[in-house]
Computed example of a mutant assay.
Amino acid sequence: MSSGVVLVVLGGFLIGGAWSIWKADHDTKGRTGPQVGFAVLLLVAALLATVAGVLRLV
């Protein structure tokens, strides 16, 4: 398995983690600041991993 495929799969897992954190909000308070920050951080890491994987495959 090439490193490009591994990076694309890793990006998919990170996108799933970002989505999971984004959906886990408190009933009355909504999303907290650190929760939003960590979800955005995971999303950026996922996008970087996915783009790097696609570029490795090309």
Rank of each mutant, 00 (worst) to 15 (best):
V5Q: 15
V8E: 01
F13S: 04
V6C: 10
T50M: 13
A45Y: 10
D25P: 07
L47E: 01
L47K: 07
L7R: 11
G11D: 06
G4E: 02
L47I: 14
V8W: 05
T50R: 06
G30M: 00
F38G: 03
V9H: 08
L42K: 06
L55Q: 09
L43Y: 03
V40W: 06
V44A: 06
L57S: 15
W19C: 06
T28E: 10
G30S: 06
A52P: 01
A24H: 11
D27S: 07
L41D: 02
A18R: 06
A45T: 06
S2M: 07
F13R: 02
L57T: 15
R31V: 10
W22K: 09
F38T: 14
K23P: 07
D27F: 03
Q35V: 04
F38K: 11
A46H: 03
G17T: 05
A24I: 00
T28G: 01
V9Q: 13
V44P: 00
V9W: 08
R56Q: 11
G53Y: 09
A49M: 05
A39K: 02
K23H: 10
D25A: 14
H26S: 11
T50H: 09
G33L: 00
W19S: 02
Q35R: 11
V6R: 14
F13P: 00
R56H: 11
L10Q: 11
V40H: 04
S20M: 09
S3D: 12
K23G: 05
G12W: 10
D27G: 00
L10N: 14
S2H: 14
L7T: 04
T32Q: 04
A18E: 04
V8I: 15
G16S: 07
M1R: 10
W19Q: 07
R56Y: 10
L55P: 00
F13H: 06
A39D: 04
D27C: 02
W22T: 08
R56C: 10
V58Q: 11
P34K: 02
R31Q: 10
V9M: 08
H26F: 04
S3Q: 10
D27R: 03
G12F: 05
G17F: 05
S20Y: 12
G53V: 12
D25Y: 10
V40A: 13
V6H: 12
W22I: 02
G53D: 04
D27Q: 04
I21A: 01
D27H: 04
L41K: 04
H26C: 08
F13L: 12
L57V: 14
L10G: 09
H26Q: 11
T50C: 05
L47D: 00
G37F: 07
L47M: 11
G30E: 03
S3Y: 11
